[in-house]
Amino acid sequence: MMVPRLAAVPRFATLFAAFLMPHLASVAAAQEKPYFVTYSQDLEEPGNLEIETKTALARPSDSSHYGATALELEYGVSAWWTAELYLDGQSTGHQSSLYTGFRVENRIRPLMREHVINPVLYVEYESISGADKTLLEVVGHDAETNLATENGEARREHKHEAEFKLILSSNFKDWNVSENFIAEKNLGHSPWEFGYAVGATHSLRGKASVKDCTFCAEKFIGGIEAYGGLGDTQSLSLRETSHYIAPLLGWQIRRLARLSFSPGFGLTSSSLDRIYRVGLAFEIAQPGGWFHAQKGSTR
């Protein structure tokens, strides 16, 4: 199956940006955690749209540097249901740039009250090529060698996958602690693969400042996450699995955007030595209101 070249993506991005520009006055500040792989109980606020890029930069052994970006569109369908669309692409040095596929996911909070541990159910469908390098999760026996395959060869493999996560998350004394259990199935012929992600974050300061500020401590959230594969149904073991640990830093840049950064370190011989992640998110308040006048609107 032919995979579209990345050249189509900038045209789409330009049109999309042109559509959004008049509405940037209605951006909203989110209080989201700077996790890249781990999910917390936070869902998108109902009616809001978040646009985020998550970029992973790494260099597998015996291969070239690459940068892989996932453009994420996250919409709050309701206070207990968030839907997302990811568009993935990557560029590998001395090789090529590719669009590598899309993912559609839904996160649902089954319990309407806040508890000590809050479960969230996650269901995702992925249609991606073997050249996808965004590493939004690590499952089974995913290894550095998968990322070293040449783009020309890797893009020929096309994967239809279903992924399920049980997200458990707690907010306690200004800490967030989240645990994700991942089960992924290639809808073709492969076995179920398993993985995990765990993380903890804490705002650098609890109280908000009286005046608007950019560099106040409460605008920063620090944390750490760890993630990796747990084997598959044919080999449910940690042998030849990848595991990473990654400090996190998130910065809410006034109401405009949120910037996240995370240097990740491989813990096993199957892992990449290092992977750097950068995220940039814009949250747009109530874009549904652009298309119809709201009674009592002050905008």
Binding site: Q31, E32, K33, Q41, D42, S78, A79, M112
Partner: peptide, 23 residues
Amino acid sequence: LRQGDLAHGMPSWSNLPEAQRWQ
């Protein structure tokens, strides 16, 4: 604020630090 009312569209603000909820 901490609980929200998810069934009726009010998100939980347990993700805000407690001091900010009191503010």
